[in-house]
Design a binder for these strands. Structure first.
Lengths: 229, 229
DNA sequence: CTTAGACGGATTGTCGACAATCTTGTTTTT
DNA sequence: AAAAACAAGATTGTCGACAATCCGTCTAAG
């Protein structure tokens, strides 16, 4: 019904440019607020402006750049208001995803997630503090629940349109705090609620989980704001 | 922060093609499921394929067409599953919009909406049965509340990405039922809750309002499905 | 008879160049 | 001196043509 895969194998040149620019913007390789020059980027990626503009259109779609007709595109700037708006939406949507997943996920999918969580937990205990694995595990957890909702529009919004922007906030604000161990317990509680087919509880727990994640990076942004970026 | 205006004045050729194709698809002028031929459309609109492809990219963004790399685009097909998924999301998002609007809208904005509702109510009584005015009034009501949330991402999703698809379902399934008068009462109750700054109640009422709207077109789609479109 | 492979036609993806528009710095006018 | 008008430069939007890929059909082998 719809392209819902997060990691699409790049088949076209525009796909490759899109992926590389997503990475570059999310990781701050291209500074927030900086202007995007089409001729410059075309030269840098060694291709024509046609596929580049296709990539820019998709970057706009996931809110990483902002375009103005006849005036060009700029990389998005992080802001407290933006973070708040983004997480307001994310709490609501991931909560909904949990509620739907509680009735839509198959027993097999649930069992697989529980097994994966236990596996992640053990590797996390071994490599304490390695936030990379935590990061990947966390993303995979949320990703599977979102897919479990079986709602294509919801999946599209969360995995294609808001996902990269959320990563941008987390990466640029250095989300590697002491939540590593607590997040696992919260994940476990959520998947248990889904296994019990308790959508209401799963919804509630996920909203709290997302809210906790927001509160974890909020102070960083606030202090950054006071120092004038 | 973001382009959040629903009726953007078309400044570029791609904008004009986009608007015309949105209308054509929503109103069924181009049959659901039919293939989109770029050369054919370019000839029909008398322009090159470059702005046409830009328009197609945006049509995909609002879920009116589906593209497959190197294989072309097809107009989206209506389905019961799609309608259900769409309204699941809409209930959640418009409910959230209400909750936010209850704290974010200014007194002036609320007063203006109340005045507009009374005005619509009187004209509706005069032109009983004219569903066009009801349609426009209903859209305007929802549109203003969505804007009132002041959340740019929420606004973008509802007014740019899901709006046209919702219209497509309503138009093609002939949403002109006997809900005309009841909708006004529900609108009135919602705006009153917002005026009282009662976000929880406004949220609840809006979810019910959207659910009622869904139940109004659901049977039409079901019977259509049985007769094999 | 079924299935694998190749060929032809059409469609999509990409390219380089031109035209329209905006930005910036200067000049002119009030 | 401040504001408006103008001009140069650069950037975006659009065009027509070429290259790469896919779809359907036919042929040929098992």
């Amino acid at each position: 019904m719809m392209n819902a895969s997060r990691q699409n194998i790049p088949v076209t040149a525009a796909d490759r440019v899109l992926q590389e620019m997503q990475r570059a913007i999310v990781e701050g390789d291209i500074a927030p607020g900086s202007k995007i020059s089409e001729p410059e980027l075309a030269k840098r990626f060694d291709l024509s402006r046609a596929p580049l503009r296709e990539a820019l259109a998709r970057l706009e779609r996931c809110h990483l750049i902002e375009r103005i007709p006849n005036a060009g595109a700029r990389v998005v700037k992080l802001s407290t208001a933006g973070l708040l708006s983004l997480y307001q939406l994310r709490e609501e949507l991931e909560g909904l995803a949990c509620r739907l997943a509680a009735t839509q996920m198959t027993d097999a999918e649930i069992a697989e997630m529980q097994a994966l969580l236990d596996q992640h937990l053990s590797t996390q205990r071994v490599r304490e503090g390695e936030s990379y694995y935590q990061e990947a595990g966390d993303l995979d957890f949320h990703y599977r629940i979102i897919l479990g909702s079986k709602n294509p529009y919801l999946i599209n919004i969360l995995t294609d349109e808001l996902y990269h922007l959320m990563r941008m906030y987390r990466v640029q604000l250095g989300m590697n705090g002491p939540r590593v161990s607590r997040a696992f317990d919260e994940h476990k509680a959520i998947i248990n609620a889904i296994a019990n087919r308790d959508g209401e509880l799963a919804d509630l727990l996920m909203r709290r989980h997302v809210a906790a994640s927001r509160r974890n990076i909020e102070p960083t942004l606030l202090e950054r704001e006071q120092t004038g970026n």
